[in-house]
Nucleic acid binder design. Sequence first.
DNA 1: TTGTAAGCGTTATCAA
DNA 2: TTGATAACGCTTACAA
Lengths: 337, 337
Amino acid sequence: MPKPTITDIAKALDITASTVSRALAGSPKVSQATRMLVERKAAEMGYERNVLASSLRRGVTDTVGMVVPRVNRQFFSNIISGAEAVLNPAGYNLIISQSHEHSEDERRAIQTLLRNQVSGILISHSIETKDAEAFKDMLASTGVTVIQFDRAFEGIGDLCVVNDNFECARSATRHLIESGYERIGYMGGDESSNVYVDRKAGYMAAMREAGLEVNDDYMFSNCITRDKGFYNAAKAVERGCGALYCAGDYAALGVIEYARDKGIKIPEDFGVVGTANENFTDVVYPSLSSVEQNSTEMGTAVAKAFLDIKSGKALNTDKIIIPTRLIVRDSSKRRKY
Amino acid sequence: MPKPTITDIAKALDITASTVSRALAGSPKVSQATRMLVERKAAEMGYERNVLASSLRRGVTDTVGMVVPRVNRQFFSNIISGAEAVLNPAGYNLIISQSHEHSEDERRAIQTLLRNQVSGILISHSIETKDAEAFKDMLASTGVTVIQFDRAFEGIGDLCVVNDNFECARSATRHLIESGYERIGYMGGDESSNVYVDRKAGYMAAMREAGLEVNDDYMFSNCITRDKGFYNAAKAVERGCGALYCAGDYAALGVIEYARDKGIKIPEDFGVVGTANENFTDVVYPSLSSVEQNSTEMGTAVAKAFLDIKSGKALNTDKIIIPTRLIVRDSSKRRKY
DNA sequence: TTGTAAGCGTTATCAA
DNA sequence: TTGATAACGCTTACAA
């Protein structure tokens, strides 16, 4: 037999569907007796509310969509996990879509979510997405709550949640300076992203504050992969660089491997600090100092912000900053002199 | 203004909603002229079909639910990624739920999916779920297609997709034997799971085939974490064990770290092979030999099987086996003698 | 406290 | 080829 509906329950009890609906919804305007009866019958028949019909009728859904570049990246899967932990107990469920770092996929994902009448969209933009015009257009006149996180554009959506990328880079760089390294360089990513703009600025600030000059010979952008890190480490060393703050752990890993290849001693002769605290950082040898981004916390913050907005709670900010934390491991533990 | 509906489009063009619906659905029973008109108007008004209403009316959804223990584990996030890559182009979208390794969360997740009228459930059971009775009951009389993967129970669902866990362990163990290691032990997980039952059997088979005896002193179950690996490595070494096949990479990592601590040389004095090919395996020193599970491929296989079943294609099997592949790295590269 | 009736947006059937 | 009408399962005024 097919799935039972409230009408089936109503018939079985010789009452109307509205009463059943009210009883199941926990409405106070229904007698204890009938409520019991309805609940028992519903359980007996294995009834489950049809969310489609309910949402259609109510005009709202309890579904939230999240768009990330890739789910199989630790940072994002932690965010998903954190968001779920907050959203599910609150009665919402999460649809995940991937942009695979492409604007077109991102656009499609958003459209699908919109068609599914999600009540909110939580998004971290693809690297290919350079501005938010298309995004803005799509969302126009839909009442969905939009929260951007990590990679965010100004002036779009209800709120954004980001790491303190400036401070992240600043503290890491300062740590290298204080550990006695000299001629400290920077490896970063594409500067169309707020993330790398801020990290670069943080690095520069730390250098400036210490009265050190920034040398373009030691600056590498578009350098966040293991290969690029390895490749550019060679250039950096050749040019006399003594330490690198890397805005990504994979590049930092490449640096360590280059050093190992060339017999350059880390941390004695060269210092490295990465970013993201990937799960290989305390496995690589020497272990890699890195900045923890608290990604799970970012996920819970995004979800909480969504719930707050939905419940009409005024948020006294349009930007939530998730703090980062420098974790010092062996790759930057030089004895000061 | 609120989101436009087909009725709005119909009014604007002075035709009926049925015609608009047909035009947008690409029905052949509508003139070229009106189709053009409708399409243009729809685009102009920024119309998006309301999936809720459509699904309710049609009685089917294009939504598939997936339940995994945790999304932030490489193995599962790869599976999600692989499944999405197949499902999305086919017009389906995926709702992800996590069980956090708890039966109760798993039950809730399934219920939510059912309420959302998913047309399929793709599930890898939580470690806490020891049998499939509850699962069976919930699914009774719902017509959803069920595909289990990785952790699966017999006789449930339409199909299951698993690794060749037996062969995985057998080939890894054989490799250790052929590399000249002696007194080879095993570190595995909870044997209420088909995964670890099969891997242990594979290990035993390889030993038997080589005429070697299995020594209980070198067998460790419930040992898949870094800490447990470290802890039990001590016991193993003390008891004269010469190599370990670990059914999980984290335990293997613990073994490597114990050896490093004690000055035991890997691969010269001790051999280790892990399982899962986690992304730290080629970063740890010495690099860890491991068995690649082809998780992304498992994801695509699960999704394809779902599509095949939906399209009525008869599957000539009730179990799809995803092959594994041993990747030999330094931790087991002993010169034979 | 319960019943009646209408409607959410879409699609399928039937008739024109 | 298009239109009128009903229905999917649920919720909610309003009436009783």
